Simulated assay, not measured.
Amino acid sequence: MMTVSEAAGTEGGDDIERDEGAAGGGVCFSDQGMLVRSVLRTRLIPWRDVAGVEALRSPLGRSVLVHRLTGFGGRRVILPSPRTHLFARDPDFDTKVASIQRWRDRLSSAPRTAPTSAVRRLWYLCAYLAIPTLMLTQSLLLEGGYWSQTWWPWRHEATSLPNACQVFDRVPARARGLVGEAEGDPYGSGAPGGRGAQKTECQWESGSDLGFRLSFRRYDYAWLKTGSRHARETFYEEKGWEQPAVLQPLEGLGDVAVIRDPGQTQPDRTNLVEAKVLKSNVIIQVSYMGKMEPHTAADKVEEIARIATTRIKPSFQHRLLGLFEV
């Protein structure tokens, strides 16, 4: 039995016990037929059953197609070797195909079949392209594909969150009057917030004031929804809990931002002043509860919200290489 290369240089059938081909597969030839080895099995195709041999072209290269007669009419078998493709060129491919055809002509009595028609070749091409096309479509176009993931290079989404306590330490002194010099407590940091969310939060207490809190919530792709969609839905759900007259918009801040109208609170009571900002897949919440005059507290809350929003900086470099802290 001889290999494809050896068969290319002889018309006889020497007993050479070697074969060649890709790892896990190959073809040997003898006067009895073709011994086809694959990863799963080895089979002999007698020459008397071979009705035709031709080179089959595919998008990545060419292989050998054997037309085999069976009791049910016939079938087509693609040999594991010889092959030539983009990543492994075989300059002797045509010579090897011609040699197999000569062996067939000399040893097979089966009537020769016509070459594969253009329609069938088109069908083979479609079969080759079907799976990669479906995978590409799913990954790029359909909801839930790679483009929906936070790490996708061209998505403008944050992949991490800043430390809420450190953000507050960097705000101007005029805005720190909400809590004085109290140290922040990283309350609830890292706790999951549902819908694939990551959370970092810090709260302060000082004197008679009940407290001040700054929180970030980042949403990842989950449940066939992008992180930005999760964040937007959550933002508007929570916004819907408030009376429309209580909220007023903050211009030029994130994608959408609102703050509780300080005019709706009573200056002689413990007041709640809260701002909420949506930026891509992140929700930023700044809230103060204390006895500070409502309009003054609202100005400080808004200033801190604007500074906190600048700490969310999704960048191509960060998403692609993880070089910058977000």
Rank of each mutant, 00 (worst) to 15 (best):
W47H: 01
L69P: 04
L60F: 13
P46I: 03
L60R: 14
L44I: 07
P91G: 03
L69G: 05
G61L: 11
A98E: 15
V53L: 12
L40P: 01
G33W: 09
E54H: 05
F87R: 05
V50D: 10
G74L: 05
L56Y: 02
R89L: 13
R89E: 13
R62F: 00
L69K: 14
L79K: 01
L40S: 13
R41E: 14
P59S: 09
V50F: 10
V66E: 00
L86C: 07
A55E: 12
G61M: 10
R37T: 10
V97Y: 14
V39A: 11
S38W: 10
L79V: 01
L60Y: 12
S99L: 05
K96N: 14
V97Q: 13
A88N: 04
L79M: 01
R48I: 08
V77R: 07
G74C: 04
I78E: 15
P91S: 07
L65I: 02
H85P: 02
V50N: 09
L79P: 02
F87M: 03
W47Q: 02
V64F: 09
T42K: 08
I78F: 11
S38V: 11
A55P: 08
S63K: 06
P82Y: 00
G52T: 01
M34N: 04
K96Q: 15
D92W: 11
S81H: 14
S58Y: 10
P82F: 01
R48G: 12
T84W: 06
V50G: 08
R83M: 13
F87T: 04
L56A: 02
S99P: 03
V53C: 09
S58I: 11
S58R: 13
D94K: 12
V77P: 06
R68K: 13
V66C: 00
G33S: 09
S81T: 15
L79I: 01
A55I: 03
D90H: 14
S99Q: 06
I78N: 10
W47Y: 04
